[in-house]
């Protein structure tokens, strides 16, 4: 099996789907001849031509708005928003149009499109190349929200997203675009949406993470193991709808939960997880559900590594939960 980084795996997924299905088209800023500022669409313009891979004017509302029209027509657009931080001009189109189209037309219409966008910090990107805006979209009924953490998952999940009948926001953790490598099968394969995966097994504490934070969380869980603390580590992969069964199974076993994400804490996805766990498994809990997250400030530049959750912070959280 070839070894790929996440960018290569995403590029491969796009190519596989475009070869298989001529309704799949790719559009966005700098994604054509140039192949994208992160190289995710490299070679696609050359292989599939201008009709299926095209640069748009610099207008995110236009990109998503027209992609909706194309999806309504019967295409399978995969628009790229260059950075998640620049998705907001399209927020109206996503929240008021894309997410509600099926519902408001009584199921007559649907918009099966997949918005790919790099997100997250740790790349010296300051406010506007670092944000983790997933919660805004998880809060929007009608969307699916996916975050891969490995090249294998990135490819399999992206193919599933493109084939899904509903709109998917596909958040790509840019910090690990090239840093994480792994074996990726050739050709098509699917990683199902809405399924989490258990990355480490232990019976004392459940750690839940996704995206780039998953790798830091795994490092922390391995560190904890050395200290004699055994943790389950769940990689959520799909945030909406999230895999409640995997979470509850683990929580019923461990009774303790630490949730990790880099987005700000207040109304972050951790809040939803904690509330759901509280509602469904209160009597199994031995300690309050703990969140280790980014702070409730804009994403800073110089001090980003103090802002981002790191292994010592998560380890301290696990210990606090165990000692409750």
């Amino acid at each position: 099996m070839p070894e790929m980084n996440m960018i290569q795996a995403i590029n491969d997924a796009l190519r596989v789907e475009m070869e298989r299905d001529d309704r799949v088209i790719v559009m966005g800023e700098d994604i054509g001849k140039f192949g994208g500022v992160f190289r995710a669409t490299q070679g696609l313009y050359q292989q599939f031509g201008e009709d299926r891979v095209f640069d748009t004017p610099l207008a995110e509302a236009g990109i998503i708005g027209t992609a909706i029209g194309m999806a309504l027509y019967g295409l399978r657009p995969v628009p790229e928003i260059q950075f998640a931080d620049y998705i907001y001009p399209a927020f109206d189109q996503i929240v008021n149009e894309l997410s509600k189209y099926r519902y408001r037309s009584g199921g007559q219409y649907s918009c099966p499109l997949t918005i790919r966008t790099p997100y997250g910090g740790g790349v010296k990107g300051g406010h506007y190349h670092s944000q983790s805006p997933e919660a805004y979209f998880i809060h929007t009924p009608g969307l699916k929200v996916v975050v891969p953490s490995s090249p294998y998952d990135a490819k399999g999940l992206l193919i599933s997203a493109i084939r899904d009948e509903d709109p998917v926001l596909f958040f790509e953790p840019k910090r690990i675009y090239r840093a994480v490598k792994g074996e990726v099968p050739k050709g098509e394969y699917l990683v199902p949406l809405e399924r989490a995966t258990l990355v480490r097994e232990g019976d004392q504490c459940t750690v839940i993470a996704y995206g780039a934070m998953l790798h830091m969380a795994r490092e922390t869980v391995d560190l904890a193991t050395k200290k004699g603390i055994r943790c389950d580590l769940i990689d959520l992969r799909t945030l909406l709808p999230f895999d409640i069964d995997t979470i509850l199974q683990s929580v019923q076993k461990t009774g303790r939960v630490v949730i990790v994400h880099e987005a700000p804490r207040t109304c972050g996805f951790g809040a939803e997880l904690a509330a759901t766990i509280g509602e469904k498994a209160l009597l199994y809990l031995e300690a309050p559900v703990l969140r280790i997250t980014g702070f409730d400030t804009p994403f800073p530049y110089t001090l980003e590594h103090d802002y981002l959750p790191d292994a010592p912070r998560v380890l301290a959280g696990i210990e606090k939960t165990l000692n409750f």
């Binding site: 001009p89 300051g126 406010h127 506007y128 804009p298 800073p300 530049y301 110089t302």
Partner: peptide, 20 residues
């Protein structure tokens, strides 16, 4: 707080640069 070149100076009536 911001990436390089994102300057601001209220004294000089220069608003704050934003990347978007």
């Amino acid at each position: 707080r911001q990436m390089p070149v994102h300057i601001a100076s209220s004294r000089l009536h220069v608003l704050s640069v934003s990347s978007p």
